[in-house]
Design a binder for these strands. Structure first.
Lengths: 150, 150
DNA sequence: TTAATCTCGACTAAAACGGTAGGGATTTTC
DNA sequence: GAAAATCCCTACCGTTTTAGTCGAGATTAA
């Protein structure tokens, strides 16, 4: 049930850019704050740019900046685009369904469906802005369970 | 966030044995019902035996049977033992914590913690017996949200 | 013009995944 | 005591994924 380092790093980079409040940030600064090598970050930021999350500017004084408002960046969506489907199993995926020969008789599918739903509920209700402000909810009920340590 | 085929197959095998109500079941019968090759199943059942979930009997009329009652087989535990930690990230794992250089400053850890908790809540509240009887809850509240299709 | 910066594609080493293969040990049945 | 069914165990293997590295090029500001 792992998230890859690439996904983690992408989110770290977005968080750094979110904290710069609109200023361009050169990649070596992002690298310093995320503890990721410049070369690997290059790949990831390139992908984030192609996905439309960040804008880049070349040359001296160049760098990256968010293209979207942090409130418009959905963490579930980012993870899905970097890592693939949130579902633990193809048979339970809404965005990348893969049929299974057992299917109806399968006693596991309902389980995977619930797992997928709970993961998606958390991730899709969280925005980059929420992370920046340490507002993380479980997504259950209409309530406001807030996980806020420190 | 995937579950490996090995984990899925292990659960399928346990379900088949759970349906046999105590009778020994030869591996080729399990293979037929799970749609897994005999040779691969051998490996998986060997592992399940060493973990204490199944008992095996050799020779003619041999096969496998559950060693524990389906109500005592915790799905979260099985997955953890077959696949490793439920947490999407080492920094949020309760059973296999891995320190992270960012740690306190990290805005992502609270997210991974919530994700881990919600996954664990579902899987650890589900037993093999629940699966056999199509009782799957989200684990939220004390309530009885039951996912029961058909 | 130069130096900082992003762009892009190729490459690679290591690990994980998803099995396959084969020989050995045990048990029942005849 | 021989044969057949069955589990036991270790080794191996091809493919994919992961986690990067490398190098050359394009753009831009000063």
């Amino acid at each position: 049930m792992k998230v890859s380092s690439r996904g983690e790093y992408a989110l770290r980079a977005l968080l750094v850019l979110g904290q710069q409040q609109g200023k361009v940030c050169p990649i070596n600064e992002i690298a310093k704050q995320t503890l990721v090598t410049v070369k690997y970050l290059e790949q990831i930021l390139l992908q984030l740019r192609k996905l439309g999350y960040v804008h880049s500017k070349r040359g001296i004084q160049g760098g990256y900046m968010l293209r979207l408002s942090p409130t418009d960046i959905n963490i579930g969506e980012v993870i899905r685009q970097i890592e693939g489907p949130l579902s633990p199993m193809g048979c339970a995926s809404t965005t990348a369904y893969v049929p299974c020969p057992l299917e109806d008789k399968c006693l596991l599918k309902p389980l995977w469906t619930v797992v997928r739903d709970t993961i998606a509920r958390v991730l899709e209700q969280t925005t980059l802005d929420d992370l920046l402000n340490k507002r993380i909810t479980t997504g259950i009920g209409g309530e406001s369970f807030v996980k806020n340590e420190n």
